[in-house]
Simulated scan of single mutants.
Amino acid sequence: MTQTLPLNDRDLFWPPADELAEAAERIRARLGDWPPTHAPWRICLSAPDEPNGGDLIVVTDAQQHGEQLARWLVQGAGVIVAAENQATLHLGGEKYRLEGHLAEDWVPALAAFLACGFDPHDALLLALAWRDGDEAKSDDAFPHDLAHFPRVAGLPDAPAQAFPRCPERLGLYPVLPDAEWVERVVGFGVKTVQLRRKSAEPADELKREVARCVAAGRAHDAQVFINDHWQAALEAGAYGVHLGQEDVHTADLHALAAGGVRLGLSTHGFYEILTALHFRPSYIALGAVFPTTTKVMPTAPQGLRRLARYVRLLDGVVPLVAIGGIDLQVLPDVLATGVGCAAVVRAVTEAADPAAAVSALQQAFTQ
């Protein structure tokens, strides 16, 4: 059992509030087994004299505190502007806008989720998914009803029609660096692969690579996704495109949807999951589950506990892909969460015998 950090031994609120601290402790006790946070946030219901990077200052009127709000942010604090059925977190130069129900005890719920190690934007989202009295209903009261979750506001319009749906359980999903690898791996019988070519230059070479991958997929009845390079994928008639969170603001999602292209979106927590759901993608990737060296990750590894929570929340809603640091050794634990697909990189591309590695990985999905 993971040792949790006792909340009553911490400076949780400013000004100190025993009743809120007791409620936070009660809620935390029902949220399940989580590692203690290494970032002891303090929730400030009035502004401290010297705000710092560990403070989250809650206000109800942004205009009234306009100049102060700017100063608090410069001093490193976060600011939560809470109003009826909405809350916005300003932190680290980012703005996280949520619309949803604010329970009477959303503030102690926020403290409890922060204590579980969730980043402030995810903790705030979970606090809005909380309902008064949830801690009394079950030994495990962690929010799992998507109908109770808030909506991420301020996003670009989603295409009028949802993206075509992928098979519910995509199985083994190798992410590969070039067309040669794609041709090789679909030749092993793998039915879902991704080309992750880091450079878009030279453009003619990129188009040839993408076209080769698409042709290989058609020849072997495999589903080939193209990472990032959505224009080339659309032009070549690719089965699907995989994009990051930042790409939804620049890629022409309407053209992709109209072209029948499947869309996979990366996520790194609850806030990004809700952002992805807004666009009704073909699948959502959840990661990084474990540490990975294949790319620089914007967040710490999610771990199996969070992955299991994501699967419980989204099972039957959208196909899911676990990604990040997954190899044959940990794959059974990943699949035990209920996720129906696991993306792998080095487990195939750095294997001494890639064909044997693919066979062993595929077998894990049948056990």
Rank of each mutant, 00 (worst) to 15 (best):
V317H: 04
G53C: 08
L126P: 00
R165A: 13
A129N: 03
L206Y: 03
P332K: 03
C116T: 01
D204R: 12
A47P: 09
P36H: 11
V358G: 03
R346Q: 13
H101C: 07
A129T: 10
D333V: 00
H90Q: 15
E235L: 11
D139S: 14
D105I: 07
I326Y: 04
V330I: 10
T60F: 11
A215G: 11
P319I: 07
H38C: 11
I43P: 00
R184V: 09
V182Q: 07
F149L: 06
A222P: 02
L331M: 13
Q3V: 14
E205Y: 10
P35E: 03
C166V: 11
D119M: 12
L124A: 08
A300K: 15
E168M: 08
L12D: 05
G264Q: 03
L277R: 01
H254Q: 14
L253Y: 05
A29L: 11
G54M: 11
E183P: 05
Y283I: 06
P159I: 02
K295L: 08
V186C: 05
G264I: 07
L176S: 04
L20H: 13
C166A: 14
L89N: 01
Q245A: 10
L98F: 08
L331F: 08
A232S: 12
K198H: 06
R309N: 06
A364Y: 04
F365N: 08
S282L: 07
H229T: 09
A257V: 05
D33P: 04
L307F: 04
G189Y: 05
D122V: 04
T275A: 10
R262L: 07
L206D: 01
G171D: 02
A355F: 06
K198C: 06
A162P: 06
E104I: 11
E19L: 13
Y271P: 02
L155W: 02
R197K: 12
V348C: 06
A147F: 13
Q362F: 06
H65K: 13
G53A: 09
I326W: 02
P174E: 04
L146G: 13
D353N: 15
F142Y: 14
P298E: 12
R212V: 06
V334R: 01
V289W: 06
G287K: 00
L5Q: 13
R280Y: 08
F188H: 10
H268T: 03
R262F: 02
A153N: 10
G269Q: 00
E104W: 10
D134N: 12
T293R: 14
E205I: 10
G117Y: 01
E201T: 14
I323D: 00
L304F: 02
P202A: 11
P48C: 08
T293C: 08
V224K: 04
T192V: 12
Q75E: 15
A62D: 12
D221Y: 09
I326P: 03
D132H: 12
D247C: 02
R196P: 04
L31T: 08
R212F: 04
A352N: 13
R196E: 09
G287E: 01
P16N: 10
L265V: 04
E272V: 07
V248L: 08
V296D: 14
A300L: 15
L73C: 06
K95D: 14
Q68I: 09
V182Y: 00
R197W: 09
F118Q: 03
A211T: 15
G340D: 02
D247L: 06
D9F: 14
H121F: 12
